[in-house]
Amino acid sequence: SAPVFALSYLLGIKLMPRIRNWKDLSFLRPTEDAQYQYIEPLFKGTVNWHLIKTHWFDMMRVVLSIKAGKVMPSTLLRKLSSYSKKNRLYQAFCELGKVVRTMFLLEYISNMKMRREINAVTNIVEKYHHFLDWIFFGKEGAITDNDPIEQEKRLKYLDLVASSLILQNTVDISLAIQTLTARGEIINHRDIEALSPYPTRHLKRYGDFIVNLNNIPQPLETAINLPPEIFET
């Protein structure tokens, strides 16, 4: 949303989301007399610079509060949006966000390499979230506890379990690659690029999990010791 673009910009973060329906978004021209030869139909409004200027220091106070840890960005956006029709500060965030979003969209539609990179990174993030959903199957992934401390524990435990599984998957894949290369199989960088640390078919989610502390795994530097030639282009 526009306020998210504004907050990210003020926090020094370049937000680069994948936007499928960018044609439905409003592009803002800097002034009413600004005209563009080939992309004129995209622009549907003009920036209200006065609104942004009037509430600029208020927005900076909000950003400083976030950086100081006094307020969470999600909490702030939720609180402001509940009064969006009356809250001029929220409207200023929206206006600034539309400016930042317009600049991003202009770069997005004109830079194919950028679109490909954003799409690739977004796919990785979505795969990770799908992996987390697969792990967190209890109660369909819902955190029903109202205690913030317990909620935080559940999220941290989920990250811990996910990281452990990703590490084990990486070790297993690396050992498989070492076995194949030892047999004389040719594995190039394109094969490696297609691999993912999120496979789940071999994982068991149900039943008893027995931890054998006497079964010491091999050192990681031995397990993940891939021949350098497979990374050559």
Score class of each variant (00 low, 15 high):
Phe104Ser: 09
Asn169Pro: 00
Ile13Cys: 08
Leu11Val: 12
Leu80His: 05
Leu106Ala: 13
Leu165Gln: 03
Pro73Ala: 01
Tyr157Met: 04
Glu193Met: 14
Leu180Ser: 14
Leu226Cys: 02
Tyr198Thr: 07
Phe27Ser: 05
Ser74Ala: 11
Thr122Leu: 04
Ile149Gly: 06
Leu220Asn: 00
Ser26Val: 11
Arg88Phe: 07
Met72Cys: 10
Asp191Arg: 09
Val125Lys: 15
Tyr90Ile: 02
Leu220Phe: 01
Leu213Cys: 09
Lys79His: 11
Arg61Gly: 08
Lys127Val: 00
Thr233Arg: 10
Lys79Asn: 11
Leu180Gly: 02
Asn48Pro: 04
Asp147Glu: 05
Val99Asp: 05
Ser65Glu: 13
Val211Thr: 01
Ala223Pro: 03
Asp191His: 13
Leu64Thr: 10
Ser82Val: 11
Lys53Thr: 10
Leu25His: 06
Tyr83Met: 15
Pro219Thr: 02
Arg29Asn: 11
Gly45Asp: 04
Ile177Leu: 09
Asp133Trp: 06
Gly138Arg: 10
Arg18Val: 15
Thr222Leu: 14
Tyr108Val: 07
Ile192Ser: 04
Arg29Phe: 14
Ile173Val: 04
Met60Ser: 05
Gly12Met: 05
Lys98Gln: 13
Glu95Asp: 10
Ile149Cys: 08
Asp208Val: 15
Ile39His: 12
Asn119Leu: 12
Leu11Glu: 07
Ser26Phe: 08
Pro197Arg: 04
Ala6Pro: 07
Gly141Glu: 09
Thr200Tyr: 00
His50Cys: 05
Gln218Phe: 14
Gly141Tyr: 06
Ile187Arg: 02
Tyr36Trp: 10
Gly97Ile: 01
His130Ser: 11
Glu152Thr: 14
Lys85Glu: 12
Pro73Met: 01
Ser8Cys: 15
Leu10Asn: 04
Ile124Arg: 08
Pro199Ser: 09
Thr200Lys: 02
Ile224Leu: 06
Val63Ala: 02
Phe209His: 14
Trp22Gln: 14
Ile13Val: 15
Leu203Glu: 05
Lys113Gln: 14
Thr170Ile: 03
Glu140Tyr: 10
Trp56Ile: 04
Ser196Gly: 00
Gln168Asp: 07
Leu160Pro: 00
Thr54Tyr: 03
Ala194Leu: 13
Thr233Glu: 11
Thr122Cys: 03
Phe93Gly: 05
Arg205Asn: 04
Tyr90Trp: 07
Asn111Arg: 09
Thr144Ala: 10
Ile118Ser: 01
Asn123Cys: 08
Asn225Lys: 04
Thr54Met: 07
Phe137Pro: 01
Ile13Lys: 10
Glu32Gln: 15
Leu51Lys: 13
Asn169Phe: 00
His55Glu: 03
Lys139Pro: 07
Asp33Cys: 07
Gly45Ser: 06
